[in-house]
């Protein structure tokens, strides 16, 4: 029997392969927009959940989620609402601030302007100019929630315009890769930090305060109502962690993000016949298997932190392998 290709010819004949630089920028555009949305969610939820007790408590976890302890405490003595909010929204020297991320989005959007739809560009043009101009007056306690809502909505507008207008070729797949890798990274960070901040306090477990804190974790991932629908009676930390990690229907869960990454890489390898996808696919599959094979109780028992840490390392390796496969240094391309 003759060898027949499993895949038909590329779905979009006539279209040329994407420039490596465009692929890289597309991925980072999606990652930064996703990251801005997550940052806005985190700040908003932290702002509302800490108000009840102490204005400034809880803000340090925002720093830990982003692993910014070193840079933050170089600049500020204590993690107050004001200092954390300024650091993460308007500090131009902090690469994780909204202002800095908006600048990165703008750079990538300018690079991609020949490729993306006019509507996408127009929105990003206006949005990034606005976000880059945010200043101390915009982040006062009274405006914080409004600001975060606007930021979230801008990101969602972007995702909506992109879904509705970006041509479905390789660029779209790299966009999805970036968005889902970022979501996977963000959800594991959130779980890691919140679980360990909220649990070890001992006597608080099961009390009203503890539950409201966990509710806020769900809310920051926009998972509150979905969780209620799936497990109306099961508001326990383990169930919540399990939902965020393993629920296949929830759009921001780790398993959903990994499934999407896997299928996108499959399309790049199959429909577009791009080389080098194999090892990356294997790595993603390995992640999915370990996640599927364990119950959330197993994961917590064996060490949630270690597991989250491992996943984050794997996600970084996946990102690096994608970079090595699709936008290697020119010298390597010539040699290959």
């Amino acid at each position: 029997m003759t060898q027949v290709s499993v895949f038909p010819t590329p779905v979009l004949p006539g279209l040329r392969n994407l420039l490596s630089r465009y692929a890289e920028s597309t991925m980072w555009l999606a990652r930064y927009m996703e990251r801005i949305e997550n940052m806005a969610r985190l700040i908003e939820v932290t702002g509302t959940s800490v108000h009840a007790s102490n204005m400034d408590a809880g803000w340090d976890s925002v720093i830990r989620i982003n692993a910014d302890e070193d840079t933050f405490f170089l600049r500020h003595k204590v993690a107050t609402e004001r200092s954390v909010v300024e650091f993460y929204i308007i500090d131009p020297d902090n690469p994780d601030s909204i202002v800095s991320m908006a600048r990165c989005v703008r750079e990538n959007a300018r690079v991609l302007r020949p490729l993306i739809s006019t509507e996408m560009w127009m929105h990003l043009n206006v949005f990034t100019r606005w976000a880059m101009d945010l200043g101390p007056d915009d982040v006062g306690a009274g405006y914080l929630s409004t600001l975060c809502t606007r930021l979230k909505q801008e990101c969602q507008t972007h995702f909506g315009i992109t879904e509705g207008t970006l041509y479905r070729d390789q660029a779209w797949l790299f966009y999805l890769l970036g968005k889902n890798l970022e979501r996977a990274d963000q959800i594991t960070r959130l779980i890691d930090i919140k679980y360990h901040t909220l649990l070890p306090s001992g006597e608080g477990v099961g009390s009203d305060i503890d539950l409201s804190q966990w509710t806020s974790v769900l809310r920051s991932a926009a998972a509150y109502h979905a969780f209620r629908r799936v497990l109306p009676e099961g508001m326990t930390p383990a169930n919540i962690v399990g939902f965020l990690l393993k629920n296949d229907g929830f759009p921001r869960s780790l398993s959903t993000s990994l499934r999407c990454v896997y299928s996108v890489l499959g399309s790049l390898a199959g429909e577009y016949r791009l080389r080098h996808c194999g090892p990356i696919l294997e790595r993603v599959e390995e992640l999915r298997v370990t996640l599927a094979e364990q119950t959330v109780e197993d994961i917590i028992l064996r060490g949630l932190h270690e597991y989250m840490d491992w996943i984050q390392r794997e996600l970084r390796l996946i990102q690096n392998e994608i970079a090595g496969a699709f936008w290697p240094p020119v010298a390597l391309q010539v040699a290959g």
Partner: peptide, 25 residues
């Protein structure tokens, strides 16, 4: 058509290529 920068192009054996996700074209 693609908008390229100098760094997207390489010359090999007197021919010009651009760096794409599928290699040199």
């Amino acid at each position: 058509i693609p908008l390229v920068e100098g760094r997207d192009l390489v010359v090999e054996d007197g021919r010009v290529y651009m760096c794409t996700v599928a290699g040199l074209q």
